[in-house]
Design a protein around this nucleic acid. Structure first.
Length: 583
DNA sequence: TACCCGCGCCAC
DNA sequence: AAACGTGGCGCGGGTA
């Protein structure tokens, strides 16, 4: 059963219960049955906003949880979580719209043909949260105030129902997984990542010296800067200014075209070592120093905003705090609560394994039989060393043509023709300006008008060499994007299914242990997600079970997306008190 | 002062 | 190993 929620004004919520086929499968990943058209037996009521949490709680405690249909999870779920209410599953119409609008599977649908409208607008998550606090969208005059969730839901169901049978089942899973991801993102923000500010301060003091006010250079940083200036024989230097630094280096006779690490590393000069040390410390100070802690850590928790579907490929993005780029340097401040542990799980070589499954490459499947795919590639005789295997695979998936990975590519293509052929095909499609599609049906965007103009200009009679070269360069560049899109995007789908399956299992575990009504954070729960890695915060006694559930969910994700393809998705797990000890 | 953009570096 | 995919973000230095 679906229940559609619509915010009418600050005080009232419209509730429409659709009496469509009950969802016998309780999993949030279960694809819904086709919707009768017109909607039969809907009950349409209005309730006060204040009564919503209690209403949702009642529905959730029934024998079969409904699927909540709402415009945007960020507008509904934080308030429910704050009221102590969790939901099992939902349809996030905005996220689903975004997928269906662009998908090749639904290209012929009414939804895809419609002009851009309020469902194509991306609400700034921070504004959305402010709206939540205020209680209404209208007061803030935001885009999205004129969204009709019932009509949109019908359009989306029609789009999916009109796809091919294959497209229907793949998109059904994708939309369910994407929506589950939206729930998880909100729950992770609510729970927060345990963060010990005192430990963070110790890490900073060790590296930089005692805390100083913003704008003041810490003592150890000053000392390193003195070394740099001495080596350059200058009295003043602002290394934070690349332009100034470049000039100073050139004056000292160092021939570099930029001040990037990788270029400086190649230089033999006494200034290089302290300069790189300075850059490292300076980065720590500005990106994750005391200001960062003050801004982002409250009550022992780091609560970033995750943005599901924020990346074209379907990966999550984050907004504020740099959640998806936490340097290893500060992960020591991520400490489990007393009597609790982190279960840190990482999908081993996820993207090459995804490519194996996508392409059905038997030789690569054989190489991936063990936990280490790259070592497996060495063992089957495809490449000579593990580092070579890794750089060659990454190069193949990113579209590298030069250097070591370029040299290794022919051997890789010989050993794994289907896998390499698969990404090459995706690259060629992109070079022609065509869309490519992930396993579950997320399609890449079409290149923009500029790109097309460059291509057509080059194909005109009498096009000059520069135009032709530029067109070829941009075509190759777009090909690298589509080449990577199919792999990165399908990996993101696998990760969503993995995480959604784990979430369901953790919820069941919590219910078994403490009955219903338990708070999200009183039992094992997800606290962090990083593309192919998840962190569960759990009581010590639950760790063994959580590790087992993580593996179960990984196996299930593989089956859901690839059926019985002979590809395994091993996960490495670590049970730790500090995140720094995970890897 | 508010924005914008290139640079550089962090994550995967 | 090399500069090849997706991002966020802080900074300096420019412009409106």
């Amino acid at each position: 059963m679906h229940i559609v929620l619509q915010q009418l004004d600050g005080a009232r919520v419209r509730v429409v219960q659709l009496e469509d086929a009950p969802l016998a499968d309780p999993s949030p990943l279960a694809a819904p049955a086709p919707l009768p058209e017109p909607v039969e037996g809907a009950t349409d009521t209005v309730i006060p906003r204040a009564e919503l949490p209690a209403f949702v709680r009642r529905q959730e405690s029934g024998p079969v949880q409904p699927r909540w249909v709402w415009d945007d999870t960020t507008l509904w779920y934080p308030a429910l979580l704050a009221a102590g209410v969790r939901v099992a599953r939902c349809v996030d119409l905005r996220l689903c719209h975004n997928i269906l609008r662009n998908a090749v599977f639904t290209a012929a649908s009414e939804l895809a043909a419609a002009p851009l409208g309020p469902w194509d607008e991306v609400l700034d998550p921070r504004i959305a949260q402010r709206a939540e606090a205020v209680g209404t969208l209208f007061d803030l005059d935001l885009p999205g105030g004129d969204r009709d969730p019932l009509a949109e839901f019908a359009l989306q169901r029609a789009a999916v129902d009109g796809a091919s049978p294959q497209g229907r089942s793949q998109l059904g899973l994708l939309l369910a997984a994407e929506s589950a991801g939206a729930l998880i993102a909100a729950e992770m923000t609510f729970a927060g990542l345990p963060w010990d500010a005192a430990m963070h301060d110790r890490i900073l003091a060790d590296a930089l010296g005692p805390r100083v006010p913003p704008g003041v250079r810490p003592s150890k940083l000053t000392a390193v800067l003195d070394e740099v200036m001495a080596a350059l024989q200058v009295r003043e230097l602002s290394p934070e200014s690349p332009g100034e630094l470049l000039k100073a280096l050139q004056r000292a006779g160092i021939n570099v075209t930029s001040t990037r690490q990788w270029e400086l590393q190649e230089i033999e000069h006494p200034v290089i070592e302290p300069l790189l040390r300075y850059k490292k410390l300076s980065r720590l100070l500005t990106a994750n120093g005391w200001t960062w802690v003050d801004t982002w850590v409250k009550d022992g928790r780091f609560r970033p905003t995750y943005v599901p579907g924020g990346v074209v490929t379907g990966r999550w993005a984050s907004d504020g705090g740099g959640a998806l780029q936490l340097p290893h340097q500060v992960r020591g401040a991520v400490l489990a609560d007393q009597g609790w542990r982190f279960v840190v799980a990482d999908a081993a070589q996820l993207e090459p394994r995804i490519l194996t499954a996508l392409s059905g490459d038997r030789a690569m499947a054989d190489a991936g039989r063990g936990v280490d795919l790259y070592q497996g590639m060495v063992d089957v005789g495809a490449v000579d060393t593990r580092p070579h295997a890794k750089v060659a695979m990454l190069g193949a998936m990113y579209g590298s043509t030069t250097g070591e990975s370029g040299r290794l590519l022919p051997r890789l293509a010989k050993a794994f023709p289907q896998a390499i052929g698969f990404v090459e095909t995706a690259a060629r499609a992109g070079e022609r300006g065509e869309r490519v599609t992930t396993r579950l049906g997320r399609s890449s965007p079409l290149p923009g008008a500029d790109w097309r103009e460059v291509q057509s200009a080059a194909s005109m009679e009498g096009a000059n060499a520069a135009a032709t070269q530029r067109a070829r360069m941009e075509a190759r560049s777009w090909g690298r994007f589509t080449r990577n899109f199919v792999v990165q995007g399908t990996a993101a789908e696998w990760a969503l299914c993995w995480m959604a399956g784990l979430r369901t299992r953790l919820q069941a575990l919590a219910a078994r242990e403490s009955g219903t009504g338990a708070d999200l954070t009183s039992s094992a729960h997800l606290v962090f997600f990083l593309h192919d890695e998840i962190v569960v915060h759990c009581p010590l006694v639950q760790t063994d079970e959580v590790v087992a559930l993580v593996r179960e969910a990984a196996a299930e994700a593989g089956r859901l997306i690839f059926g019985n393809a002979p590809v395994e998705f091993p996960v490495t797990t670590a049970v730790v008190t500090s995140y720094a000890d995970a890897k």
